[in-house]
Computed example of a mutant assay.
Amino acid sequence: MSEQVVSLSYPKQYLRLAVGAIFFLPGLIFASWASRIATIQQTLHLSDAGLGAILFSIPVGLMLSLPFAGWFISHIGSRKLAIIGLLVYAIALVGLGAAPTVPLLITCMVLYGFASNTVNIAVNTQAVATEKIYGKPIMASFHGLWSLAGFGGAAIGTLMIGKSIIPLHHFVLIFTAIMIGLAICQRYLLDDSTPAEVGPAFVLPDRPLIKLGIIAFCSLICEGAMFDWSVIYFKKVLNAEGAWMGAGYTCFMCTMAMGRFVADWFAARFGLKQILQLSGLLTASGLMVAVIFPHLYTAMLGFLLVGFGVSSVVPMVYSVAGRSKTMSPGMALAAVSTIGFVGFLIGPPVIGFVAQAFSLRMSFILIAVMGLCVTGISSKVKL
């Protein structure tokens, strides 16, 4: 993003609201899809193994987007990329609801994954620029809006299921809401499409960016584990029944959202390094509480701590990466996001392998080590 593009013809609060909206909207898309996976599985008569294999199409699409994201940012700017990406993301959501066959579903999933990461990098680039204008940490609050949209999208999905509304009609409704929101907020986003000396489409990240990527990698392993294994942990290790199986996941999601709304204040008061160090310790401590004391309420407490621990790591890392002196904000974010997302991808299957070889509790100890790595590496990074 060009450093010259800092003057606004409207109050900066409008910019913050607009950027907050383009964080909320993709969160709504993500949660809407997640809430209807089981319905689509039933409609297409997919087995659990078949669904698992098909779901891998989304990270495939995401990985395919990584080589292009930096190029898109540098040539058309994050504002246009966010608008186009959100449009494609919403269209892909409708496609997921309309797909009558597995091959078409896979195609839409690849497009969905491609668009989701493109939007992720574009909106975070806008957030970095907004944070520069405000001159104080505000990145985590934007990510908090994404989490808040997750709750809203899940609630809408539950309502749609209760009313027996098919996914296609549900997703068309969400598409309409996305288009209305985008039409309102797009005019207030920072226009960074002015041609500049954009340089090559891809540059190897320097050592500080690699370290930031590794911090994101370790934290996203923990975050991915909570998404994919928290319910299983409560079911198999704690022998939780009924709604209690989801208690750990709910605790984690609540504190992750809450943590993102307060992380900026703490970062401004105590510094990014201290927040990252504390985040790693909270993550490790929460997981160890759940492992050492495998009982319902102690595990819930542990998962509450894990939610607070992972909440601010990725937003803070993105904030620092966006201020890179060696790469443009968009390309720096693409580089860090590439390294970090590998952790999100490999974490859940590695946990499965460790659980199969030893136990699920042992695999959670491995995740706790990743939390300690966040603390250790953050201590050595200049922030």
Score class of each variant (00 low, 15 high):
Gly309Val: 12
Gln126Arg: 10
Val306Ala: 13
Met1His: 15
Ile83Gly: 01
Met316Asp: 07
Ile106Gln: 01
Phe151Asn: 02
Gly50Lys: 05
Gln13Trp: 15
Gly246Ile: 08
Ser285Trp: 06
Gly340Ile: 10
Ile83Ser: 05
Ile166His: 12
Pro200Ala: 14
Ala240Asn: 13
Met63Thr: 04
Ser363Thr: 00
Ser230Glu: 01
Leu189Arg: 04
Leu204Met: 14
Asn117Phe: 13
Val6Leu: 08
Pro200Gly: 10
Arg79Pro: 04
Lys136Gln: 08
Cys373Pro: 06
Ser319Cys: 13
Leu96Asp: 07
Ala216Ser: 14
Ile232Pro: 04
Phe308Glu: 09
Gly286Met: 10
Met253Trp: 00
Val306Asp: 05
Ala240Ile: 07
Tyr10Gly: 09
Leu25Phe: 09
Glu3Lys: 12
Val119Tyr: 02
Asp228Gly: 03
Ile166Phe: 13
Val5Lys: 06
Ile83Gln: 03
Leu360Gly: 07
Ile178Phe: 01
Gly27Leu: 10
His45Pro: 06
Phe171Met: 09
Leu168Cys: 03
Arg260His: 10
Phe23Gly: 11
Ser219Asn: 12
Ser7Lys: 12
Thr283Ser: 10
Ala240Gln: 13
Leu304Ile: 14
Leu17Val: 10
Leu383Gln: 13
Ile54His: 00
Glu197His: 12
Leu96Pro: 06
Gly248Phe: 08
Thr43Gln: 15
Pro294Gln: 06
Phe202Arg: 12
Thr43Tyr: 03
Gln4Lys: 11
Ser359Pro: 06
Ala92Trp: 05
Ile133Cys: 02
Asn120His: 13
Met139Pro: 11
His143Ala: 06
Ala34Pro: 04
Gly144Met: 07
Leu8Phe: 05
Ala31Asp: 07
Thr375Ala: 14
Leu168Thr: 14
Ser32Asp: 12
Gly280Met: 11
Ile367Tyr: 00
Gly97Met: 07
Tyr112Gln: 08
Pro294Asn: 09
Leu8Asn: 04
Tyr233Thr: 08
Gly330Leu: 07
Ala34Leu: 08
Met331Glu: 12
Val310Thr: 13
Asp191Ala: 07
